[in-house]
């Protein structure tokens, strides 16, 4: 019996965002947008979903006069991401 994959993470864009955030201290919205190649609207919706699940925290502030949204992975999010990667391994003959 294969373990169930976290449906919240089993989505291309959300998984990409979580992969980046798992590797860095925190990342701002423009960096995530550049790395994922997603549109602002789509990325914003997906980040909100991750934030609602408690996987990431979103901090809105300013850098100089420019608005800046910073995302950070939470311990819950990190655990979910690690669980997802471990579950993936069961699907593959590694």
């Amino acid at each position: 019996m294969f373990p169930k994959l976290d449906p919240l993470l089993h989505s291309e864009l959300r998984l990409a965002v979580m992969s980046i955030l798992a590797d860095v201290t925190s990342a701002d919205f423009t960096f995530l947008k550049k790395q994922t190649g997603a549109t602002s609207g789509n990325l914003s919706v997906q980040i909100d979903k991750l934030a609602a699940a408690g996987y990431v925290t979103v901090e809105k502030g300013f850098k100089g006069k420019m608005p800046c949204t910073t995302c950070t992975i939470t311990p819950v999010g990190m655990e979910a991401f690690q669980g997802y990667v471990n579950a993936l391994k069961d699907y593959l003959p590694l």
Partner: peptide, 11 residues
């Protein structure tokens, strides 16, 4: 990048 694309474990 699409948010609802079905992905295999390998992908």
């Amino acid at each position: 990048m699409e948010q609802n694309k079905e992905m295999t474990a390998q992908e």
